[in-house]
C-alpha cells in the first residue's frame, strides 16, 4: 500500500474500532465466556486488520473483523482445551482468588439466587442450563445426555438464562 492508502486504511480501522468495538467485545465474550479473554482477542483482531494485505479483496471491513475475531476465538478455545488437561496441576495456583472471602460471599449469594430462579423453571430447562452454563458442557454433550435435539437444548438454555438474568436484576433494583 502507498503512504496515502495506508493512512486511509488506518483511519478506516480506527472508525471500525469506534463503531464496532462494543459489539465485538460482546460477541467474543459470548464465545469465550470471559471478558478479559475477549479483550485480548479483540486487540489481536485489530492488529491483524491493520496489517492485512488483502484489503482490495474485502468488501465489508466489519464482516471481515468479525470473521478474523471468530477464528481467533476458536483457536483460543482449542488452546484452552489442551491447557485444561494440566488444570489439575495448576488449579491451586490459578484459583487463589476463589478462596478470598469477598469472592466467596458473592458466589454464595449468587448461587442461592440462581438456585431459586432455576426451581421456578421446568426441570429440563434447569438441567440444560446447569450442564451448559455452569458445568461448561457442549450443547452436543447436553443433547446426548438428555436425549434432546441440540436445538431444544439451546432453547432451554436461553430460556433459563433469560429467566435467571431477570431474577438477578429484580434483586439489584429493589
Amino acid at each position: 500500500m502507498s503512504a496515502v492508502t495506508l493512512s486511509v486504511h488506518v483511519s478506516d480501522i480506527e472508525r471500525l474500532f469506534r463503531e464496532q468495538n462494543r459489539a465485538l467485545i460482546a460477541f467474543l465474550q459470548c464465545r469465550l465466556n470471559s471478558l478479559s479473554d475477549a479483550q485480548e482477542v479483540a486487540q489481536e483482531a485489530y492488529l491483524r486488520m491493520l496489517t492485512m494485505d488483502n484489503r482490495e479483496e474485502v468488501d465489508s471491513l466489519r464482516s471481515y473483523l468479525f470473521k478474523v475475531a471468530g477464528n481467533l476465538a476458536i483457536d483460543r478455545l482449542r488452546k484452552r482445551k489442551v491447557r485444561s488437561e494440566f488444570a489439575v496441576v495448576q488449579s491451586q495456583d490459578e484459583q487463589v482468588d476463589e478462596h478470598s472471602p469477598d469472592h466467596h460471599a458473592v458466589a454464595v449469594e449468587q448461587v442461592a439466587g440462581v438456585r431459586r430462579a432455576l426451581k421456578e423453571l421446568p426441570a429440563k430447562a434447569a438441567q440444560a442450563f446447569v450442564m451448559h452454563v455452569i458445568e461448561g458442557r457442549d450443547f452436543s454433550h447436553v443433547a446426548q445426555t438428555m436425549k434432546l435435539s441440540e436445538r431444544m437444548v439451546r432453547y432451554h438454555v436461553a430460556h433459563a438464562l433469560a429467566h435467571c438474568r431477570a431474577r438477578v436484576d429484580e434483586k439489584e433494583v429493589p
Binding site: Q110, L118, A123, Q127, M131, I134
Partner: peptide, 23 residues
C-alpha cells in the same frame, strides 16, 4: 453474557451442588 460468565466460573463446590440438584 456477563451472567453466563459469572456462573461459568463458580467455585467447584457451588458447581457440584447445583449439578447435584438439577442434573
Amino acid at each position: 453474557s456477563a451472567l453466563a460468565e459469572q456462573l461459568g466460573t463458580l467455585d467447584q463446590v457451588s458447581r457440584q451442588s447445583l449439578a447435584k440438584e438439577f442434573v
